[in-house]
């Protein structure tokens, strides 16, 4: 009896000991999570209702004035337009191209690996360096893009209005042109991101069972398209949800290219004034921390909303089949 009690006692003390160890192991991580991730959100939330700026001793509460400003000033209207244009363009195209490239590469077997390697290079490369390289490519006079376009002058291609205009006058200024700027930034976003999506889709494709295709063929799905529609696409459901979400979050965070091309002002007539750049310009360069915090809060709201939708979709098992 005494023996059992003794062993029971030591079990309790061992458990206590384990609990203490467990907490001391998680304590640093917990402290850092609070200090680095949660406290700043609260700080931003509080400051977004003030006119605080660094260096000033006091500040006033301004109510929802900062938020009202975001929804009334034309600058911020441009900000929302630029951000959503970017997201709505880059996400579908980079996901589509990623899927297309994955299907082609997958169908080629081992030979396709070389394309996989090449398409993944932009993901690895420092985006800022590549943005500067693109800037030279797009240089109006000495850039490779316009030089290549000039080759078409004098050929049948001149019947296309774009080339006719370019050959008679000049080809677009690209980054200096309000009508092209945001689209060029979108293009670079797609260029950089689709290889990442391709690799995720490839991982999804290798997990589709061969028997499913045989079964579909038995059921009369002979053409490649039918097989894609009935087998591949449903099997890729969870991958697609994930790829779309992560592309959205990355697209919302676009900054490097914009800052590299237009250190001041976010593009010709603010046509590429995206949210991250606005936070940087208002909050840090101009020390308007109230407005910057308000943009930060909206930004967090968008991103968290997207991720929650993704988790909800995945938990509902979007396996269509």
């Amino acid at each position: 009896m005494a023996l059992i009690e003794a062993s029971h006692g030591s079990k309790v003390s061992q458990d206590n000991h384990q609990v203490r160890t467990a907490w001391s192991m998680t304590a640093p991580a917990l402290a850092l999570m609070f200090l680095i991730l949660l406290v700043p959100i609260v700080v931003a939330g509080v400051l977004s209702f003030s006119n605080y700026s660094l260096g000033n001793t006091g500040f006033d509460w301004v109510g929802s004035q900062n938020y009202e400003r975001l929804f009334s000033r034309s600058t911020y209207e441009k900000m929302f337009i630029a951000t959503f244009t970017y997201v709505v363009t880059v996400v579908p195209i980079s996901v589509g191209l990623g899927l297309g490239a994955a299907l082609l590469v997958h169908s080629l077997g081992r030979v396709g690996d070389i394309y996989k390697t090449i398409y993944f290079l932009p993901v690895m490369a420092t985006l800022l360096a590549m943005a500067i390289a693109w800037e030279f490519m797009l240089h109006p006079t000495i850039g490779m893009v316009n030089r290549t376009l000039e080759i078409a002058c004098g050929t049948w291609l001149e019947t296309i209005p774009f080339f006719l205009q370019g050959c008679e006058g000049s080809f677009p200024l690209w980054l200096g042109d309000r009508d092209y700027a945001i689209w060029v930034v979108c293009f670079i976003g797609i260029w950089q991101g689709f290889g990442f999506n391709m690799v995720l889709f490839l991982a999804g494709l290798t997990s589709v069972h061969r028997e499913l295709y045989n079964a579909a063929e038995m059921d009369g799905a002979r053409s490649g398209w039918e097989q894609f529609r009935l087998v591949t696409w449903p099997a890729l459901g969870p991958t697609t949800v994930f790829v779309v979400t992560i592309s959205c979050i990355r697209a919302f965070q676009v900054f490097d290219t914009i800052e590299a091309f237009w250190p001041q002002g976010g593009g010709p007539s603010k046509s590429a004034y995206v949210m991250m750049f606005a936070i940087f310009e208002k909050g840090i360069q101009q020390n308007l921390i109230g407005v910057g915090s308000a943009i930060t809060m909206l930004f967090l709201l968008f991103v968290m909303f997207l991720t929650l939708i993704q988790r909800w979709l995945i938990e509902r098992k979007v396996h269509y089949g």
Binding site: L30, I41, V43, M276, I279, G283, L300, V303
Partner: peptide, 20 residues
């Protein structure tokens, strides 16, 4: 809490971090 914090991109909270 870990799962919740996965939602927060550090770049997004750059401004309050910078202030602190």
């Amino acid at each position: 809490l870990v799962l919740f914090c996965l939602l927060i991109p550090v770049h997004a909270i750059a401004l309050p971090l910078y202030i602190v």
